[in-house]
Design a binder for these strands. Sequence first.
DNA 1: AGGTATTCACATGAAACTATTCTCTGAGTTAGG
DNA 2: TAACTCAGAGAATAGTTTCATGTGAATACCTGT
Length: 400
Amino acid sequence: MVLKLDKIFDSFTKESLFKNKFVLQTNYTPETIPHREKQIEQIASILAPILRFERTSNLFIYGKSGTGKTLSIQYVKDELLKKVKKQKINVTIEYINCKLKKIADTEYRILAELIRKLGGMVPATGLPTERLYNKFVELLESKKQLFILILDEIDQAVKKINDDFLYNFTRLNSELNKSQISIIGISNDLNFLDLLDPRVRSSLGEEEIVFPPYNAEQLQDILRERADAAFKQGVIEQGVIEKCAALAAREHGDARRALDMLRIAGELAEREGKKKVTTEHIDKANEKMERDKVLDIIESGPKQFQLVLTAIIELDNKKQKIFTSDIYNTYQRLCKEAKIEILTQRRVGDIIAELDMLGLINAQVISKGRYGRMREIKLIIHPSIKERARNILYEAIALR
DNA sequence: AGGTATTCACATGAAACTATTCTCTGAGTTAGG
DNA sequence: TAACTCAGAGAATAGTTTCATGTGAATACCTGT
């Protein structure tokens, strides 16, 4: 035992491979954002009017995840705020991520969060939403100011809520006398604007900027720059950056993922007591990320999700083609065994759809003509994880 | 043979319900003046 | 009479049920050749 611990501790007391790991963490903001100069300039020129204390156009930003949207907007925001401070004008810019569960994923909570940021206090529940609007307006009107609201991942919010709340926000200006508000929406979904009410669309989409995915070369640039800052000299072996970039480029050029992968590869190498990060470490990191994601969902998911998933895994072992009805039957059986209440097929259908969203399964609606229409479901968990997943699930259900 | 019409087995959508947590309000109660 | 207590009304939220409508294409059913 002691020996083993010694070994572990040794690998840590030994020289770290990292110079500054923080640089690779997701919340790190680099001082330069390569290959986004154009977008940043565009954003800046659209927001520039606030320096003359004029309301800016509403702005809409699209781009897949990990294409630097949030980073760029934050960067411009910070720079702008510096200028604003010098000029002593009343400008407030608030950033809100609508995807944060329990914080800003409903109309009420977005408003509550805004109010909190403006220094007000509102309870987490109990009040009519209308009242929050009033309070928000009141806070805005307390002094003459320009307010810029950045709503990250609004597509998520609109999907969860309806799009009325965006309409309410865009209309807010007519209620404001002293102050003015502009909205910047950020969305991962490229077709998001089409889903909106025309009134909202025209108002919100006054200006639009698209963030294209990074290609492998650009990813390499980004990775190199960060790797230089994060790792010690000569730690990264030849080809590691390239491989990392290539893997991420396949996933619609997600830079965040690439950086995560690089960091995890570094951690793995360090844990193994190696002096260099090799391409094998990248492979392992890639695998580990996948496994962690899957196991996390499996472990922490609600028990009904676990049951449905168990049903799918069980079926997957003996059948190659799984349909909704199969799942539902097996699911019902499992429920009875575990003495858990059985949900309707309607609901189970939704759960299947959500598992699909999470990427644990692949569900496709197919039509078998006379024999109906259903989803064909494939489990896309790596076989090595499957066994473990199954054990976790059985345990979770048995515990209940 | 070629063209419609049916039909299956769910998918998908909307609304409503349930349970829980929380606020607000106003009636009733208490204690002090 | 002011302060306090406490029950009931009303909201937000998450997860679900109920009811209703939609849907793609394999088959059944015609139709005229």
